[in-house]
Design a protein around this nucleic acid. Structure first.
Lengths: 345, 345
DNA sequence: ACCCTTATACTCGTTATGAGTACAAGTGGA
DNA sequence: TCCACTTGTACTCATAACGAGTATAAGGGT
C-alpha cells in the first residue's frame, strides 16, 4: 500500500502475517567448451530411483539453486556465490543479477497447499576448463534446450517446422479470440518475412512456444504428458520454470555481448582470435566473417598481442592475444558489434 | 542448499522458520514534461508535521511502493500495476522489471530489530500529460537528484568539482589500503581523461559517490548529518535507498534507448521530430545534432508522417509524425543510435 | 615438392556518422 | 509591406565503419 509518510522502503508492514513466501536463488552458469555453449545443471545423473524413473520430470535437469539465508547473507549476490561454492566447489567470477521470478504456479507444489516461491536468478560466466567436482552437477549443451537458437550452420531446418506449427496455432486461436497480431509476434520472434533473426529474443521465442503449447513444460505444468513430437522436436525440458530462466540468461548474454566485453569472461587469459570468435559464435548462435571479426576486434583496441603463438592450430600458428583491461579506460561501451544477423540468402 | 533431487525451484525448505523477510515492490515511473525528465515520487508535500520537520529524512521524497501480496497477485508486475493504479490513479503502460534489492541495511529499521526487506523494483514510462490525482504524489525533476547527469548544456561545471573531490578521496584511501585503481574507476565513471562520458553509467557513478561519502545518503544511513557542501552540491537525497533505485532506472532507460524504440513511450501518439528529439535528450542528458537526428529517425523507418502539421512551433510549422509499429516487423533492434557522447572539445 | 590447413593482410564498394551550409515557411513588429 | 527572427527541412562532404571478397603467409603431413 502506498503511503504518504514512508515507514519502510517497501511499505510492507512488519508483523503482518501472510501465507509463507519462500525466497530462493537460481544461477544460470554459462561456459563455452569445445565451441559449444554449456550450462551447469544439477539433478540425478540417471533415473535409477525406482518407479519415479518413469516420470519425465524426474530426469529433468535443474539449475543450481539455494535458499536466501536472510540471517547470514549480507547481499543476494554473496549468498548465491556462497551457495555455488559450497555445492559445486566452483568459485564464480563474472556475475550479474538476471531477473526475479514469482509468478503464481511456477512451483507445482504451490497448488497442493505449498508455499509461494519467489526466486532471484543470477547469471554467471565461467572460463573454459572450470569443472565441478560434484557428481550430479553436469555441463549441458544449451542448444539441447533451444535447438532453434543455433544458427551457426545457417538457418536451422527446425525453424520452418516451428513456423508451420505456430501459424497453424495462430490460425486456430484467431477464430475464437481477437488475435490477429499473433502472426506479427511470430514474425518478429522468429525473424520470418523481411524481419531478420534477432539472436537476443531468446525469451520471447520460448514464451511464444510455451503459449502455443509447443514446449513440454506447457503440458508438464498441467500434469499431462507432451506429445511425442513435442518431446522430440522442441528441445529438452528442464525442471520447474528453469528453461525459462535459462532463456532469460542466454538472451541477456547475447544482448550484452554487443556492448560490453563479456566474451573475455568465457575464455582463458590468453587466446587466439579464432578462439575468441568461436566463443562469441557459440553464445550468439551466429557465424561471423573471420577476417572482419579480426579487423573489428583489433581495431577496437580490446586486445593486445602477447608475442607468443599457439602451434596446435593444424595450420599456420596463430598469435596469442590477451584482453586489454586498459581499454575500459579509453572507450565507452566496447563490445563485439559484429553480431547483427546472419546472411540468410 | 543445492540438492541433487530438486524438490522446489529454489531449494527452500517449506516450514523452516526464519526471521521475517518482507517482500515489497518499488516503481520508478518516468516521464518527460517540458523537456525535463521527471520521476513520480510520494511523501509529504511540505514538512508540517511538527518537530519531525527538522529532520531532513522527513522531507525526502520516496518512490511509490507497496507490499507484494502473495495471496492475491498472480505476478509481481500485476501487483505493481495494481498498487500504482490504486494509489495514484495512474494506469501504467510500458513496464519492465528493473532489479531486486536486498542488501542488509538498506532499511534503517533493520538494525533496530526490524525485519529484513527485499524489494523488487520496476521501471515504467509514461507519456507527457498523465498526471496523478493524489496530492502527495508529485513529479520531480530527475536531475535534481543527479545534477551531474545533465550534459545537455555541455559538460556541467559540477563535474570538475566532483573530479577534484573524488581524486582527493582516492588519494586519502590509497595511503591506507591497496587502492590504486580507484583513479581508474573515477576516470571510467565520469569520463575523464580520454575516456568519453557514457550516459549509461548512472548507477556506477552514484555508487562511487556514495563510497566516497559525497552523497547525503552515506551520512543519513549512519544517523549523521551530511556537510552543508554535500547537501547543497551533490544532489537531493531520497528516502532509504531510493536514489540508488532511481539511478538504476535512469541508467536502464538510457541504455535501452540505444537499441529499442522506448522513446515513443514518453511522447504522445503524434509528435514533431523536435519533440521526439527533446524527449530523447531529456532522458539521455545529451544534446544531439538536429539535422542528423532527423535523418537517423527517418531513415530508420521508425516513424511515418501523418500529413498534418503543428502550428505552434514559433517558426515554420513542423510535420506531425507517428510511430510505425510495423517497424518492429522489419528491423531487428531499432533504437536511436545517435546517443553516443557529446563533443567535449 | 606438393597439398592441406589455418592465419593474416589488403582491397573495394556500400552505408553510416558527424558537422556543416542552404533554403523554406511560419510569426510579429517597424 | 518588408524585415528580422524563429524553427523546420533538404542537401553536401569528408571520414569511419561494415560486409564480402581475394591474396598471401606459415605451419604440418606425405
Amino acid at each position: 500500500m502506498m503511503s504518504s509518510s514512508p515507514a519502510s522502503p517497501t511499505g510492507a508492514t512488519a508483523g503482518r502475517t501472510q501465507p509463507e513466501l519462500l525466497v530462493g536463488l537460481n544461477a544460470v552458469i554459462l561456459a563455452v567448451t569445445q565451441d559449444q555453449p554449456r550450462v551447469l545443471s544439477v539433478g540425478p545423473q540417471t533415473a535409477s530411483l525406482g518407479d519415479v524413473a518413469a516420470k519425465p520430470e524426474a530426469t529433468s535437469r535443474a539449475l543450481p539453486f539455494g535458499p536466501f539465508d536472510r540471517e547470514h547473507d549480507r547481499t543476494l549476490e554473496l549468498c548465491m556465490r556462497e551457495t555455488v561454492r559450497k555445492e559445486t566447489g566452483i568459485e564464480l567470477g563474472y556475475v550479474e543479477q538476471l531477473y526475479t521470478f514469482a509468478d503464481k504456479g511456477r512451483d507445482p507444489r504451490e497448488s497442493s497447499g505449498g508455499s509461494r516461491v519467489l526466486s532471484v536468478a543470477y547469471l554467471a560466466l565461467l572460463q573454459e576448463g572450470v569443472l565441478s567436482g560434484v557428481e550430479d552437477a553436469t555441463w549441458e549443451d544449451c542448444y539441447e534446450f533451444f535447438p532453434w537458437e543455433d544458427w551457426r550452420g545457417g538457418k536451422p531446418a527446425l525453424i520452418d517446422e516451428i513456423e508451420a506449427a505456430l501459424m497453424e496455432w495462430a490460425g486456430r486461436v484467431e477464430q475464437t479470440s481477437a488475435g490477429s497480431d499473433y502472426r506479427e509476434r511470430i514474425d518478429i520472434c522468429f525473424g520470418l518475412g523481411d524481419v531478420g533473426w534477432d539472436a537476443y529474443r531468446v525469451l520471447e521465442r520460448y514464451e511464444l512456444l510455451y503459449e502455443a503449447k509447443l514446449v513440454a513444460e506447457y503440458w508438464l505444468d498441467r500434469g499431462q504428458s507432451p506429445t511425442s513430437r513435442i518431446a522430440e522436436r522442441f528441445g529438452r525440458p528442464m525442471a520447474f520454470d528453469h528453461r525459462r530462466i535459462l532463456a532469460t540468461g542466454l538472451g541477456r548474454v547475447r544482448g550484452k555481448l554487443r556492448y560490453r566485453p563479456v566474451a573475455f569472461e568465457l575464455i582463458p587469459e590468453t587466446f587466439t582470435l579464432l578462439r575468441l570468435q568461436h566463443a562469441v559464435e557459440a553464445i550468439s548462435g551466429l557465424r561471423s566473417h573471420k577476417q572482419n571479426f579480426r579487423r573489428l576486434v583489433e581495431r577496437s583496441g580490446l586486445v593486445e598481442g602477447t608475442g607468443s603463438r599457439e602451434a596446435k592450430t593444424g595450420g599456420r600458428p596463430a598469435e596469442l592475444f590477451r584482453f586489454r583491461r586498459a581499454v575500459l579506460r579509453e572507450r565507452r561501451a566496447p563490445g563485439v558489434a559484429t553480431l547483427r544477423s546472419p546472411r540468410t540468402p
